[in-house]
């Protein structure tokens, strides 16, 4: 029935009988949910901004160059140089300077750049899956969905490694060798909440992936479900852009 309602009479968008945005209610609901979730993340980032601003500016270090060698006592040494004190926010490049399998070298922000890359890449595979869905190309959809899931899992793995390293250096929810305890607590809560979103995104992707394999959407006649989880997945990427900017760069 009425399959052509959307294409006819586009002038009369708000007149009832169809969507003013020409999207289905399902996609609209996903957009609205993401808008609301954006506010949740904003509240956490605002808390971060507030607390960050109530401390003094980071003392930047220009003495330690990338690829310098790290000793085990790096943190203590920097502390003694007065770079990590309770009143000043720590300079992120001195905190996040490790890389898996490479010990003892100061690699500031290298690892987090890799994580960013992984997440962007998984976003690309996701959008390729959506595009393939428009063409009803089941094999391509399943291929790209699979890659997206791998990307998400890789990101979570990276985050687990970063957390482990950070905790290994003595950071907890109520302690931080790099200066204010709030820094570590905020790091864990913001990246943790983002990681939780990535995790649920991966779970959703897995479900959709199996549905694609089972041909559910082929039967339904459209791959809108892939689009919807795609929106969610890109949103997770979007949030990471801001977490990356505010936590690691500023």
């Amino acid at each position: 029935m009425a399959t052509n309602t959307l294409t006819t009479n586009t002038k009369f968008t708000w007149g009832g009988g169809k969507s003013p945005f020409s999207v289905s209610y399902g996609k609209l609901m996903m957009w609205i949910f993401l808008l609301s979730d954006a506010f949740t993340f904003s509240s956490l980032l605002i808390a971060y901004g507030f607390i960050r601003y109530s401390f003094l500016e980071p003392i930047r270090n220009t003495i330690v160059k990338p690829f310098d060698h790290l000793s085990h006592e790096f943190v203590r040494e920097m502390g003694e140089k007065g770079l990590f004190v309770k009143e000043h926010w720590p300079s992120p490049e001195l905190v996040f300077n490790h890389f898996p399998f490479i010990h003892g070298v100061h690699l500031p922000l290298f690892f987090v750049s890799l994580m960013t890359f992984i997440l962007i890449f998984s976003s690309v595979t996701m959008v390729l899956a959506v595009e393939a869905g428009h063409r009803m190309a089941k094999d391509e959809v399943s291929k790209y969905m699979f890659l997206t899931i791998i990307g998400g899992a890789a990101f979570l793995g990276c985050q687990a490694w970063e957390w482990t390293t950070f905790i290994g250096e003595g950071a907890t929810l109520h302690g931080n060798p790099f200066g204010p305890t709030s820094f570590a607590a905020l790091f864990f809560i913001v990246t943790g909440f983002h990681g939780f979103h990535v995790f649920s995104g991966v779970m959703l992707n897995v479900i959709i992936y199996f549905n694609v394999l089972a041909g559910t959407y082929e039967k339904r006649g459209h791959y809108e479900m892939v689009e919807k989880v795609g929106l969610y997945w890109h949103f997770v990427d979007l949030v990471w852009v801001f977490v990356f900017t505010f936590f690691y760069l500023i």
Partner: peptide
């Protein structure tokens, strides 16, 4: 963010 929302999120 503009590129992610604009292109990826359509």
């Amino acid at each position: 963010a503009y590129y992610i929302v604009g292109v990826f999120m359509h």
